[in-house]
Design a protein around this nucleic acid. Sequence first.
DNA 1: ATGGTGGTCCTACCA
Length: 269
Amino acid sequence: MRLTLASWNINSVRLRIGLLAKFLASHAPDVICLQETKCRDGEFPASALRKLGYDHIAVNGQKGYHGVAVASKLPFATIEKRGFCDKGDARHISVILRPLKDREIALHNFYVPAGGDEPDPDANPKFAHKLAFLDEMADWIRTDKIAGSDAIMLGDLNIAPLETDVWNHKALLKVVSHTPIEVERLGKVFDAGPWVDALRRYVPLSEKLYTWWSYRAPDWAKSNKGRRLDHIWLSESLSSNLSGMKVLRESRGWERPSDHVPVMAHLDF
DNA sequence: ATGGTGGTCCTACCA
């Protein structure tokens, strides 16, 4: 069987339920993980998703900000919502998928703090929070051996780690999302697995790859000043099951788009 | 070097 997983920072699930339906109808992932749902659990458009065949839904939301959710065609078990940095922010949710009887996969959906504008943890508490969040992720992955069995970690990690994950490496060295300090911390989260970078498996390091384009550019496609902020990481035990990926760049050009596009990974069992 | 847009929910805050 083939399992297709998708991750999308939707930037308000209620505002963009139409675009979400369009994406699900055309690409039919088995599981969709959302970030920045921006609504309380009771306001999540669960019935609209059930009508599209996504009967199994887990949400971790809050009013107005952040919020993550998983909607699936396959049943899942054990819903866990982990708090990070004792902030009470809705930035993580996990479920257990069973694509085969003898295969249990822990799926972790993350929305890492953006970190504000100033890349100095002493001057900017949001940047300090981002770094602390990443440190806590690395500790948790190491201590709980999260990637020691079948696991997937995906979502909006708000960091573009590689030089070719941004439109201009030198120009972005002091821009939050691509500063050396964040890239180093994210590297520790990656090594704590260790994980496999599913999207980069198919795109050489010499090639640019983006999943986000700012709303502020007059013409996002023409200027093409993107960043790869969204990621799908697999435990090494799933490496041989990875059979493909897709970044749906075209959705950035849809009407009233999210500033992020969906990313997908295919796994064969 | 600066300011540019878009989300939530009514006033600023966040991205």
